[in-house]
Design a protein around this nucleic acid. Structure first.
Length: 254
DNA sequence: AAGAATAACAACCGCCTCTGA
DNA sequence: TTCAGAGGCGGTTGTTATTCT
């Protein structure tokens, strides 16, 4: 819904406000994918987002986290919410911990729109709300699927563009640095590029988890990734190893 | 058909706590 | 011990979508 909400985008002291764009979402997802959650002010800076840290955190926690459960609150969840609210009151984050995939914001909104209403009119409001919610849910699921398909398509296009540019430059720099060759020997079951990538991001062949690079050089490399212009600009001056790592960094997305 | 009412929820605000220098 | 910055939390607002009259 955020994308089509008509809030004017306010710029205050350089910070953007209002609804997030799909591009901003994409940048934030990429940041978290490689740096992990936390250090949200850094996220804003490194990802090139003109958002403050709080806004980044909120967007991730309430909307972008991959483990979020989409869809209607189930009757089981509803009864849990009622029970826990009776016990803890408006401690939404505490309640949310008992409902995996649900956020405190979501539960808070649900409570306000459902239970407060129910307390006023205990008639057939619940049934009407359920029907209404079901219809709305169906519509939203369709819209969500469509949006995700569009975003994935655009994302793949972007990444393929980067890959193509990297490959063009690969032809101009045929030699592989000694470091890359060492990494290739350390990871004999992979290409030298993958070996460097794995070592750089602390992953192995059996591990899909990727952690953030630690050294300052790697951070510089990482920072450069966030802006395609920067990538291309730095590329001409970068080592073959760095280019290989850049290449492998974006490959999984294509 | 049109306007009013309501539901839903993303996003912001302000306060509080925690943590590290 | 103090202080500043980061992050967490609950309350609230603003907007769109949908239903009702």
């Amino acid at each position: 819904m955020a994308g089509n909400m008509g809030w004017g985008v306010i710029e205050e002291e350089g910070w953007r406000k209002g609804p997030w764009t799909s591009e901003e979402d994409r940048l934030l997802i990429l940041y978290v994918k490689f740096h992990g959650e936390g250090r949200w002010n850094s996220a804003a800076r490194l990802a090139g987002l003109k958002r403050n840290g709080k806004s980044c955190r909120l967007r991730w926690v309430n909307y972008l986290r991959p483990d979020l459960k989409k869809g209607q609150i189930t009757p089981q969840e509803e009864s849990i919410i009622q029970e826990l609210h009776a016990r803890w009151g408006n401690r939404w984050s505490t309640i949310a911990r008992s409902l995996p995939g649900r956020t405190d914001n979501e539960i808070k909104n649900y409570w306000r729109t459902h239970f407060k209403k129910k307390m006023k009119t205990p008639s057939d409001a619940a049934e009407k709300a359920r029907i209404h919610s079901s219809r709305r849910q169906h519509f939203q699921q369709q819209q969500q699927q469509l949006k995700q398909q569009q975003q994935q398509f655009q994302f793949n296009l972007d990444m393929k563009g980067i890959i193509n540019l990297l490959e063009e430059n690969d032809h101009r720099v045929p030699s592989i640095s000694q470091e890359a060759q060492e990494m290739a020997s350390m990871y004999p079951n992979t290409s030298e590029h993958q070996g460097y990538f794995y070592s750089m991001f602390n992953v192995n062949d059996n591990d899909n988890n990727v952690s953030a690079p630690e050294s300052s050089n790697e951070e510089i490399l990482w920072d450069g990734l966030w802006n395609l212009d920067d990538v291309l600009c730095n590329f001409n001056a970068a080592s073959a190893t760095s280019k290989a790592s850049l290449h492998n960094l974006v490959s999984p997305f294509c």
